[in-house]
Design a binder for these strands. Sequence first.
DNA 1: CAGTAAACATACATACGTGTATGAATAAAT
DNA 2: ATTTATTCATACACGTATGTATGTTTACTG
Lengths: 206, 206
Amino acid sequence: MARKTKADKEKTYQALIEAAAELFRSQGFTATTLNEIAERAGVTRGAFYGHFSSKSEVIQAIWEEQALPFFEPIKDTLLNLPQDKPAEAFRQQINSLLELFEDNNIVGRAFFIIMHNMEISDKDKELVEFLSDKYKLYEQVLCCAYKKLGEAGNLKQGVNPDHAAMGFLYILIGMINMALLPFGDFDYERDGYPVFEHYLNSVLMD
Amino acid sequence: MARKTKADKEKTYQALIEAAAELFRSQGFTATTLNEIAERAGVTRGAFYGHFSSKSEVIQAIWEEQALPFFEPIKDTLLNLPQDKPAEAFRQQINSLLELFEDNNIVGRAFFIIMHNMEISDKDKELVEFLSDKYKLYEQVLCCAYKKLGEAGNLKQGVNPDHAAMGFLYILIGMINMALLPFGDFDYERDGYPVFEHYLNSVLMD
DNA sequence: CAGTAAACATACATACGTGTATGAATAAAT
DNA sequence: ATTTATTCATACACGTATGTATGTTTACTG
């Protein structure tokens, strides 16, 4: 095939990323073949190998280029909650996070892929390490945020910050799981927000 | 190879189920090959095809023969919570459920596999339907139980039964996810119970 | 105590996924 | 304008997973 312009190359790159993310989400990482990715992107495997050297490399690209730019600011805010009214800032960031999932499909998919990394465990050690690092990062960020909330006296009495953080993470994982299921009709407004609202109300002082 | 006794046949059957469940959990359904299952069970693929006609059939067997007998009584109790002190009965069943995960590995694995069914979606329609049915069943059982709790006046004021049920399911999924991750060291006593305890306390009247 | 059928191993045919090597056509460089 | 380099398709080689056909031994059956 003929050579394309640089802009065209970028387009195929994005198409490959998009296709891979959607296929990983809907069929899982292992079940998705390079042929399927290429076909969905409107190219062949030849194009794929021009951009990536393996399937694992795509996940890392999805994370770093698509999800990270959205997550980074939220993460930073959570790690540095203000001394005054940290609960308010916390709620705000959580809402940003949920809106992210609602609006930007690729971020939800990336998060989902990370959360379901065990699917590919054992067979690709390096990738598992990459994914588990991300997982642990989420945990740390949440624990840190809740610790701050506790220090600022914004947690209800008897609420253990670590337990609260874990509970939050569980709910987050469960909700994303639900939201991206191939069947069912998940609706954030109806099935997502109220649950978080209730959980935050049960944990935070106002 | 020589013919075995009926008891021996049953042993290989169980060995295949056990092997498959553990491999599905640790590597995922798609990534697990029939050779791996057979090898882990100490037989060859010839034996596998004597008992099952495909990989999908194994999941259904795992569910129906291994997990269902444990779940059924809990499910029935949740669907028929007593009029007086339903909250107490509910707590008790949830504890039974969690103990099940803690003690009986195959139940946890079965639950996990069901919860992560999207991994195999799209490619095996029939299996996806089977799995999604189970998923929806969980949801219904929980919603029914919380509805009963609400009617009996056992939910705290302002708690929507459906939202509470969803939140519970999210936490359950998230916890199982966490518990069966290949990395990390999940401990039910430390990471499971307290979260449920807190959640139930925030939802139920005592 | 034959004869049969069952339980499982072995071997084979087929399909498919991956990765690489090659080639064509044209954008970019000089 | 010519050359070079690049983007991607095509073709090939290899490994591996599946499913089936066949064979072997022995438990079961009458």
